[in-house]
């Protein structure tokens, strides 16, 4: 089977407030897009590896997001769950082209 890569249009840059995460739904896939600073965007799957908590609702601290359900700490830049918990979340390449944000899925 061949893997197909899509670049989806997530929205214009100004729709993403800094240090807030936005949920972007594409087909069946729910993504959490994080804008950490002016031009720093990261996207991870909007599903905590613990019990599927919606990461988009978590509190953001630096490059980490804390899951709203049981407070797991996840690095949004590489999807790694921080100790003492374990696991990782799928990450997606995110880029700003012109004034728009695109996510590669």
């Amino acid at each position: 089977m061949q893997e197909t890569v899509y670049k989806v249009f997530a929205g214009p840059v100004e729709d993403f407030p800094i240090k807030i995460s936005k949920e972007v739904v594409t087909g069946n896939l729910k993504l959490a897009v994080f804008r950490l600073s002016e031009d720093e965007f990261y996207t991870i799957k909007n599903e905590c590896p613990h019990k599927k908590g919606p990461l988009v609702e978590g509190m953001i601290s630096g490059r980490h997001v804390f899951c709203p359900l049981h407070n797991w700490k996840i690095d949004v830049t590489d999807g790694q769950v921080q100790a003492p918990d374990e696991g990782c979340v799928q990450t997606y390449r995110t880029e700003v082209i012109g004034k728009n944000v695109f996510v590669t899925i």
């Binding site: 997530a10 929205g11 729709d15 807030i20 949920e23 972007v24 739904v25 594409t26």
Partner: peptide, 10 residues
């Protein structure tokens, strides 16, 4: 409403 409640669909 837009910042905190909107979900973007593509």
């Amino acid at each position: 409403k837009q910042d905190y409640f909107e979900v973007k669909a593509t």
